[in-house]
Simulated assay, not measured.
Amino acid sequence: MSADIEIDAASGSPEGVRLQKVLAAAGVASRRVSEELIEAGRVSVNGRIVTELGSRVDPEHDHVSVDGTAVQLDVTKRYVMLNKPTGVVSSLRDEQGRPDLRRWTDASEERLFNVGRLDADTSGLLLLTNDGSLAHVLAHPSFGVTKTYIALVRGRVAPRTIQQLVAGVELDDGAIAADKARLLPESKAGAGNSLVELTLHSGRNRIVRRMLDSVGHPVIELVRRSFGPLQLGALPIGETRHLSKVELGQLLTLSRSTDDPDGDEK
């Protein structure tokens, strides 16, 4: 990453692209408004506030933020949210011939791939992208990106069971605790069942199902409602949408705020 910002000068040929031009190309604002953002001290490059309109950046390596939110300068990158249905495996080609993600990825001109995985019998938010660097941060458990799930489980869940999930349970591959857990209104669960919302950052295999099974409440249905700052919202099952600029900025800000050590599965 370039740590320095090349400034336009009367002599010589400065490297890089003018900052306001880069911002406009990224869809932040028009070039004129981008200039106003720079002069107002709202734009930073590699963590440094830039106020000179002659500033130049390398779009391939420099990190640019506006009001503290990261901007994607590479316009070839794509970010698509999918509400994955149950019965679909999180693979671009399933060797067993089961329904896979090609139904959605083949519709894109870019070669998209999934960030992490959801089990075939789990539905909900799955991110598709061609941004390998961001995918690495979001999918790898060492970065601690949180995910929130809503589980329909068998039996009436008691408040002490919710407390137990947060305090931690012992599984065959070690102890695990939810970051947050709460019991949702019984009226939405149906007779004899409960709805539990769990937030955690673990990437262990089928961890939500195993945690709830360990406290005596097997999962009937499981859906992932959030992934990092992304919220599934009202996106219908089986449908996709491109991330908004706000959502993308939040994701990029999250990924750039992490240190880079070296999947994700429920």
Rank of each mutant, 00 (worst) to 15 (best):
D131C: 05
D94T: 09
G233L: 09
T69F: 03
R48C: 08
P236S: 11
E35C: 02
R56D: 13
E186Y: 03
V166M: 14
R209E: 07
G168R: 07
L125E: 00
D173W: 09
G54M: 04
G87H: 10
T105H: 10
G87M: 00
R224P: 10
S255H: 00
S257F: 10
K21W: 00
H217M: 07
L252Y: 04
L23N: 05
S244A: 05
A139M: 14
S244T: 15
M81H: 01
E110M: 02
R156S: 14
V153Y: 11
L248G: 07
R93H: 12
D213K: 13
T76K: 04
R42D: 04
G228E: 12
D100P: 09
Y149H: 10
A9Q: 12
L171H: 10
I150C: 02
D264P: 01
S123A: 14
G116W: 01
K77R: 15
L195G: 01
T148G: 11
T51C: 02
G192W: 05
D121I: 00
L126C: 08
D58A: 04
S108L: 08
V80A: 06
L128F: 03
P229F: 10
S214P: 06
L128W: 03
P229D: 03
F143A: 10
S226D: 15
Q250I: 00
L92K: 10
S91Y: 04
Y79Q: 03
L23Q: 04
E247W: 00
E36P: 00
T253L: 11
R78A: 07
N130D: 03
K84H: 11
R103D: 12
V153T: 06
S30G: 15
D262C: 03
G263N: 12
F113W: 00
R56Y: 14
L165G: 07
F227L: 12
P218Y: 10
L222P: 05
N130G: 04
V196P: 04
T69H: 07
D62Y: 01
R102V: 12
